[in-house]
Amino acid sequence: MAQPGRGVAAQAGAALPAAAARLELAAAYGGLSAVERGRVQALRCDVSLPRFGLEPELWRQLAGEVSQVFHLAASVDFALPLAESRAANVDSSREVLAFCRACAWRGKPDFRPNYVSTAYVAGRRQGWLTESERNCGQAFWNAYEQSKLEGEEMAAAAMDEIALTIYRPSQIIGESRSGRIRKFFGYYEFLKLAERDRMPVLLADPGARPDLVPTDYVCDAMLHLSERPEAAGRVYHLTAGLSQSLSFERIFGLMYQVLAERGGGVRQPRRYRHGELEALATPAELQRYHLSPLKLLQRTYRPYLDSERDFDCAATQRELAAAGIVLPDIERTLRLSTGYALDSRYGTAGSSAAANLKLSDRMQDGSHEAQVA
């Protein structure tokens, strides 16, 4: 930490008052006390720029004070060209790692950097996907996956110099106890269309099991492992694993069950595999599909709807369970989070400030934000 109990959140683009307002909303979401909020400082910078765009003296000052870094800055926009994904995900990794080296060289024995990657650095690989594997010459479904692998390779190379831990979460869903979530991507985008009766067909392999993991499980795991000396130099799959994952048939069934319980009056559409739609769908279904925003959503997420990934996470789950961190029930979490998304109007209910935060998050996509503590 820069000082005992003090944290710094680096944010790009917005003026400091706007950044401070976003931090205040984030602190309120996290339930921080007034004293805890007072320990968090907003710092205007861009982690993809050399020295984060800071004056050299300030950058060196921070490097001399910081004892822990969590690098979560990333763009998760699957549609970006490779050059733009690299600017967000690789350039930021390079600069954060340079900062971490400077922190370590200044002789803080307890300095710990934490690097958040993604389980989907596996790209198009199939079969047993282990934590020890990284670049196996795989192809990728999108620039996001490729740029995240390139960033992770840089982090792995830095392990010889700094006591770094790499985390690979899968697809994040809401908190297991309340269903809360801040960014309504993936499943929640399909839920929004279903609620509005704008999902004329379902296109997915019904038996495929996507890897969904509650956000509090991921956060609890990272916080615990960041304090364990033996976690330095290791890679952790923060995933559910196939045996604890739900099929798309069950996931979409649960979605429409919750909508029905709330009196939505929305009927579950017919389900097709990709490649079957044009041959088997009715003319009315085809017309609605081609005019629906679902078509664009399917184009974005198709690789994750057609197949499943078998992430090796057994050893990590055993290690976390020994510390009392157990993977929550995925179906229960998804049901709670579906209700939370509907009740919160996907993060916009309650106040205009919350709506503005949601819009800001969607526009920036976290691509130039990092946290140091």
Rank of each mutant, 00 (worst) to 15 (best):
M1W: 15
A9D: 13
A10K: 06
Q11H: 10
A12G: 01
A15F: 15
L25H: 09
L25S: 04
G30Y: 13
G31C: 12
L32C: 10
S33N: 02
V35G: 08
V35I: 12
V40C: 00
Q41Y: 11
L43P: 00
S48N: 10
R51K: 10
G53D: 13
V69G: 05
F70S: 04
F70M: 06
S75A: 09
F78A: 07
E84I: 14
S85W: 06
A88C: 11
N89A: 05
D91F: 02
S92I: 00
V96I: 11
R101D: 06
R101N: 07
C103M: 13
R106A: 04
N114E: 04
Y115P: 01
S117I: 09
V121H: 13
R125H: 10
S132M: 14
R134D: 05
C136P: 06
E145Y: 00
Q146C: 11
A155V: 08
E161M: 08
I162Q: 00
L164N: 06
R168L: 05
S170V: 03
Q171F: 05
Q171P: 00
Q171H: 11
I173S: 01
G174K: 09
G174W: 09
F190I: 02
K192N: 06
L193S: 07
A194V: 05
R198F: 09
L203M: 03
A208D: 03
D220G: 00
A221W: 06
M222S: 07
H224G: 02
E227P: 09
R228G: 02
R228A: 07
E230W: 12
E230G: 07
A231H: 08
Y236S: 00
S243Q: 14
Q244D: 11
S245M: 04
S245H: 04
S245K: 04
S247K: 12
R250L: 11
L254K: 05
M255R: 02
L259F: 01
A260Q: 02
E261G: 04
E261A: 07
E261K: 01
G263Y: 03
G265Q: 03
V266E: 12
R271I: 12
H274W: 15
H274V: 15
G275H: 07
G275Q: 09
E276W: 08
A279Q: 10
T282I: 10
A284C: 12
A284R: 13
Y289V: 01
L291K: 02
S292T: 05
L296D: 09
R299V: 10
T300E: 11
T300D: 13
R302S: 14
R302C: 12
Y304R: 07
D306Y: 06
D306T: 11
D312T: 09
A314N: 07
T316Y: 02
R318F: 02
E319L: 13
A321Q: 15
V326F: 15
I330G: 01
T333Y: 08
G339T: 00
G339L: 05
Y340L: 10
Y340F: 15
A341M: 06
Y346L: 03
A349R: 04
S352K: 05
A353I: 14
N356I: 05
S360M: 14
R362T: 11
R362I: 06
Q364E: 15
G366F: 07
A370R: 10
V372L: 15
